[in-house]
Structures are given as structure tokens and as C-alpha cells.
Amino acid sequence: MTFELDHIALSVKEVDLSVNFYKTVFGLQSIKNTASNSKTQWLALTDTKQIHLIPRPELEVKTNKAVHFALGTPNFEAFIAHLKHLAIYYSDWRDTKKKDYVRDDGVQQIYFQDPDGYWIEVNNAI
């Protein structure tokens, strides 16, 4: 058997706020929710991968940095400049603010949170 990532689904308090965040931060585009007529919003991450934002107004997210999803970009420094322009707080793994971290394998990475508190890692692994 083989597997590949299909989508990331996140429960969010305010779907419009989260859609705006992912569009602004990552430049994602809305796509049709082909699964149902619900208020769940789908965003295209790549041609074949999506982020699904599921409205849950009563949501209370309890997570930590070890529970995160990671996105890679070849434009790591430009992305950091973009976060600074948006005034989005980011840190390294140890929570040193405005600091990237270089792993033992040479990959640079940063961490930040979305409006619901989900942790996101962005790295230059690709």
C-alpha cells in the first residue's frame, strides 16, 4: 500500500477570519467544497492538496508546538519578510521570537499560530 497527503482539516471558530488568514499569509485560493453544501471552506494548497476549514463556533483549541503541520517553501527569506510585513509573530522551536532555527540537517524553520491557535511550521526543505 502507498499513501499521500490528501488534505488538512481544521476546526475553526470563525471560518471567514480563518479563510482570510490563510489567503493573506499563504496566498491560497478558495475552491469549491465538493463534499457537501456545508459552510466548510476549502482552500487549494497545491493542485491536488487542500486545507479544509470547518466552522465550529464553540471551539476551544488546546494544542502545543509539537502538534503542527509544516509547509515548505524555496522562498524562505521572502516568507519571513512577508510575516514581518503582516506583523505576525513567529519564533524558533524554543520560542525565541523573530528567530528561525536551523536543524541538524540544515533545514531552516519557523513556527507561528493561526487565529485559532494551531501551530504552523514553515521551512525551506523543498
Rank of each mutant, 00 (worst) to 15 (best):
P55E: 10
D6S: 01
Y118K: 11
N123G: 13
D100V: 07
F112S: 13
H85W: 00
K62M: 10
D47A: 02
K39I: 01
R103V: 04
R103T: 10
L86A: 08
N64G: 10
T40W: 06
D47P: 01
A9W: 00
I51W: 01
F21G: 13
K97F: 08
K98L: 08
K13A: 00
I51T: 07
L86Y: 10
E121Q: 00
K23Q: 14
N64P: 13
V61H: 07
L28C: 02
H82W: 01
L43W: 14
D105N: 14
K13P: 00
F21K: 11
G27P: 01
Y101F: 14
A44S: 12
N75K: 07
P55K: 11
Q108D: 06
S91H: 04
E121I: 09
L5T: 02
K62W: 06
Q108H: 14
D47L: 02
N20I: 07
S91Y: 01
T48L: 03
D104H: 12
T96L: 09
F69L: 08
H68S: 12
P74D: 14
V102Y: 01
M1S: 06
T2R: 09
T40N: 07
K99P: 01
F112P: 00
L5K: 03
T63A: 05
P55A: 06
I120W: 10
I88F: 00
M1A: 11
P74H: 15
R94I: 12
D47I: 03
G117C: 10
K23S: 07
K13Q: 04
V25P: 14
F21W: 14
R94N: 15
T2F: 04
D100Y: 15
R56A: 02
Y111H: 10
S18Q: 12
F26S: 09
T73I: 05
G72I: 07
L17G: 06
L5E: 04
N33Y: 04
A81D: 15
V12S: 05
F21V: 14
P115D: 09
V15I: 12
D47V: 05
S18L: 14
F69N: 07
K13E: 01
I126M: 08
H85D: 03
N124Q: 14
L86C: 09
W119F: 14
Y22R: 11
N64E: 15
A81M: 03
S91V: 06
I51F: 02
F76D: 15
V25R: 05
T63R: 08
K84W: 07
D104P: 01
K97C: 08
D105Y: 07
V102M: 06
A70L: 06
S30Q: 13
A70F: 02
Y90S: 04
L59F: 00
A81Y: 04
Y118S: 13
Y111S: 03
A9C: 02
T34K: 07
V25T: 15
S30E: 15
L71T: 01
E121R: 03
K84Y: 13
L86N: 12
K49Q: 00
D104S: 09
K39N: 12
E60Y: 08
T46Q: 01
A66P: 00
D114H: 04
I126E: 13
V107H: 10
G27T: 08
L86D: 11
